[in-house]
Design a protein around this nucleic acid. Structure first.
Lengths: 226, 226
DNA sequence: GCAAAAGTGTTACAATTACACCCATGT
DNA sequence: ACATGGGTGTAATTGTAACACTTTTGC
């Protein structure tokens, strides 16, 4: 009927955030040809009876041990020749994980898995550089109009963490006062009654993103926007 | 290596605009099972050596005669069971055509091809209702932050056409004066020295979208936004 | 001369930006 | 007491929203 010899894979571009601060991405070192020993985005073939999302979760778990918190479809890459052996079309996803997951997987170093600063990347296999670039663009754009930044922070976080995340990701200075006013005026953050000291300086309050409230507000047509 | 029996297709959700006004979408009536005689989004199998985009252009041309002006990837649909016979993953695209193309293809009615008002749709085959819904959402969202509306109008158009397009697509009234001020302040439209009369009322000026200027402004960080 | 659509400005209000000092803690 | 990061308010500017009358044509 269609005389096709096209294979289907999924790839997962997973980002993390450390308060160094840096945005990092999870890569694996390939064990087999082609591109043996090159770094690559984790991923693999989709099984006959599993959904694309299931395939991403499975591959990611198998290859890196990471369980993802936030995941969305990014783009489908299908140029002939992107894999030197055969025609492979890959549905790329883009995901975010919290620092706790982050540390665990960096420790689970049995396989060759590593977090890389997105500003200090190795050469990548296949067209993975392009995929990664697409994902970074999406991430940067998306934190300004959807509250996905919180998926990169611990559940309870300092306001300064949020601020630094935005500064790092947007690559520019942010006015602390205005940023705080804006975020607070959205009414999606709960201020907790707990303070944390980072060793130096005045202890800071912990905050929590209120997902329920966010969806309520979204219903009412109020949109997240920085 | 991967024991896959997944087939890959592309689908093209193509929108047009008539100054009735209505937004319409191009559908075909299926000739074969499954869903024989149902309406469906045009599309088909990707050939082994062609890119996904090439496949969309080809299928669309073959099935509807339409040559697309604007095309972008929409989303990839891959749930098992979306095709009753076999596992098929479909990369959906979303496209826009100008009214001239529009009329030609509506006339080229040899095959069962038809434009449907997006508010008056037939039952659709497979999961095509979901695909179409995704595409409509994207279109609605996108005209507010990218100048793709112009791809639905003739190259030279009346300001009122643009206004009606936005009114129709956004489904709400627009203040004519504010809309004009805003669009004009972007500096992406050329006002031509030609007037057109629509039978009744004062003749209106023709306008043209200045793509070069748009890309210049985009470089400078000025963004289109309504 | 009247019906129909095009064209145009001003004012009130809301949102955004710019900007600097005091506070609470650890050492 | 000083170094460090946390927390806060106001004024100027800019952008957005609301609003109605005049102009040009066809009939």
């Amino acid at each position: 009927m269609s005389n096709q010899d096209i294979q289907l894979t999924v790839d997962a571009v997973v980002f993390g955030y450390e308060s160094v601060p840096r945005i990092s991405v999870l890569l694996i070192k390939r064990k087999y040809e082609p591109f043996k020993d090159s770094w690559a985005i984790p991923g693999g073939f989709v099984l006959n009876e599993e959904s694309l999302e299931d395939a991403v979760y499975r591959e990611l778990k198998e290859e890196t041990g990471v369980e993802i918190g936030y995941l969305e479809q990014l783009y489908t890459f299908g140029k002939p020749g992107r894999d030197p052996r055969q025609r492979i079309v890959s549905v790329a996803y883009f995901g975010l994980v919290r620092p706790d997951t982050y540390k665990i997987s960096a420790a689970t170093d049995a396989q060759e898995v590593q977090w890389f600063d997105i500003h200090d990347l190795p050469e990548l296999a296949f067209d993975h550089a392009e995929i990664l670039e697409t994902a970074i663009k999406r991430l940067r754009a998306k934190i300004t109009y959807e509250p996905i930044g919180f998926e990169l922070l611990e559940e309870r976080f300092l306001f300064s963490d949020l601020e630094n995340l935005y500064k790092t990701l947007l690559g520019r200075e942010i006015d602390r006062r205005n940023f705080r006013k804006k975020i607070m005026s959205l009414g999606m953050l709960n201020e907790l009654d707990e303070k944390v000291s980072k060793g130096a300086g005045r202890p800071a309050n912990l905050f929590q993103f209120d997902k329920k409230r966010y969806f309520q507000l979204k219903e009412e047509g109020i949109v997240f926007e920085i």
